[in-house]
């Protein structure tokens, strides 16, 4: 059984009036556990559609999406939410945290969605947060956190259910350079140490050095891109 994420000639069409818009055009990609792939491209190129399909938020019009060897392309909505809960960790654009939960509860609520919260879950959440340098902030609410801290909480939340794949959607959109580096390096580290298949959609070229591979999305087509020559590694 193949681990990680695999997409086989996935297409997505939208009907807009009499026109048929191709948002994704026969996209194929394979991301192994422990691999961190960046997808770059201009806005409107289909990056978000790509991420939505990979993350079981959207069904493709054609093609196969394999999460840990399981084809999710044609599953009903109910099972898709289960797949999202157990197999996918989302890191979304800045501050998509629940405003009335403190940092620890942000993580535990994910466990609550599956049922009961055990002491082991609490210990795991605390470990994740400590790992991301948030040990001191566990009882704080999102409004008391900086942008970088919020994104680190989002990373921890994405890892909470020990999913097979991590999907990051412009995780640095609202961060300054230093914090953006900090956040992406943390994602990269977690991906390596926890053996996750990770995809980050970004238009922030400064951060590509953290990724193992870079793909370019243009007009719904995905193509591999050589790492920028002489890119700085921290």
């Amino acid at each position: 059984m193949t681990q990680g994420l695999e997409m086989r000639s996935v297409s997505k069409f939208y009907d807009a009036g009499s026109e048929r818009i191709t948002a994704l055009d026969r996209v194929s990609i394979r991301v192994e556990p422990g691999e961190f792939v960046a997808v770059v491209g201009p806005s409107g190129s289909g990056k978000t559609t790509f991420l939505s399909i990979a993350g079981a938020l959207l069904k493709p019009s054609e093609g196969e999406v394999l999460l840990n060897g399981k084809n999710i392309a044609s599953l009903p909505d109910k099972q898709l939410s289960d797949i999202r809960l157990r197999e996918v960790g989302f890191i979304m654009q800045a501050s998509n945290l629940v405003p009335y939960l403190n940092v620890l509860e942000q993580l535990l609520v994910v466990k609550r969605m599956t049922g009961k919260v055990t002491p082991a879950d609490k210990a795991f959440a605390a470990e994740l947060l400590a790992d991301l340098g948030l040990a001191e902030r566990m009882k704080h609410y999102p409004e008391e956190l900086s942008g970088g801290e919020k994104q680190r909480v989002a990373i921890a939340r994405a890892l909470m259910n020990d999913p097979g794949i991590i999907l990051a959607d412009e995780p640095t959109a609202s961060l300054d350079t230093r914090r953006a580096h900090e956040v992406v390096s943390l994602i990269a580290r977690a991906v390596k140490s926890r053996r996750k298949a990770a995809v980050m959609v970004t238009h922030d070229e400064r951060l590509l050095s953290y990724c193992d591979r870079i793909c370019r999305m243009e007009d719904g087509k995905l193509s591999p891109m050589e790492p920028a020559a002489g890119s700085v590694l921290s």
Partner: peptide, 15 residues
């Protein structure tokens, strides 16, 4: 928006 996020990370309608 908040409910959308929770649904994205796997919350079911029932929850």
């Amino acid at each position: 928006n908040q409910f959308g996020i929770m649904k994205a990370i796997g919350a079911k309608n029932g929850f």
